[in-house]
Amino acid sequence: MADTLVETNAPYAIRTYSPEQLKDALRKMFLIRKFEEGAEDSYMRGLIHGTMHLSIGQEASAVGSCMSLTDADKITSTHRGHGHCVAKNADLGKMFAEFFGKETGYCKGRGGSMHIADPSKGNLGANGIVGGGLPIAVGAALSAKRLGTGAVTICFFGDGANNEGAFHESLNMAAVWKLPVVFVCENNKYGMSTSTARSTAVKNIAERAAAYSMPGVTVDGNDFSAVTEAVDAAVARARAGEGPSLVENLTYRWRGHSKSDRNRYRTKEEISEWMERDPIVAMSNLLVAHKILSEAEVAGLEEQATQVIKDAIEFAAASPDPRIEDATRDVYTEGAAA
């Protein structure tokens, strides 16, 4: 907690977190940005074989939501999950190695972009199925409650998932059983090409919380402090045994849905308008304004992140591929035959 220099009118994040924590948050946001840019660059150089879903523009949502979590707390993530991994303290080298399909990657090259996970840090993994992580998060919360670990689970999902049956079943069960789970909807306006206006009956997805008798709030997902304030409250409520909450972070992905996206469903004006609202610039400005960092220190963080990513890519590129003969390893525990 901040101490003597508390500005009572300062935003929640400034009031709540130490300069070191805030500096670290910005560092992670830069790492996410640079990771995504590095991924995109590697893809364009033909170094990466699959597609990817970049979260450039959504960094405040990922990092802000995880501010009050420890490694014991869990997250479930989505296909646009690189940011969540970084926010949950993933190793960038292992992430890139996975991206490159290498044996040194988080999933030993078996999972790729959509399945990066780090159970040791409480990250139960991204998910290739829209809504796939929702019931799993509820299950993790059930474990925490049954085993009395005190852990909270944050369930990241996109606006598209809110129309999956799994969303409704999961929220309902979490509420019925009062489980320590926070549903964080990263509403970036489009499920692939279909806007929430065209796909979702309610204006704000958070309104759906009412149906499951849980708090639901909608916040500016590009405002780090706003995200932190909303999610922290929900995490605290979960930890206190009061049950689940739904937080909707309104944000925007600067890039297309995936590499196949030709951006026919949104305008250049809309994209540039959101780019004006760059969450990293906003966070940098916030920290500079509150004298937590100088401009030069911000630039230093960015440069540092660039170097980390460069090293991570080098590590990944130099790593060995998995052996073909190991293709069926890890289907079952200890090679149980099938």
């Binding site: 019931p135 299950g139 993790a140 474990s143 049956g165 079943e169």
Partner: peptide
């Protein structure tokens, strides 16, 4: 809620139950 229930079971199994 078969889908949700099965998923909760998967998540619980992943995390210690």
């Amino acid at each position: 809620s078969e889908l949700g229930g099965a998923g909760v079971a998967v998540g619980a199994a992943l995390t210690g139950l």
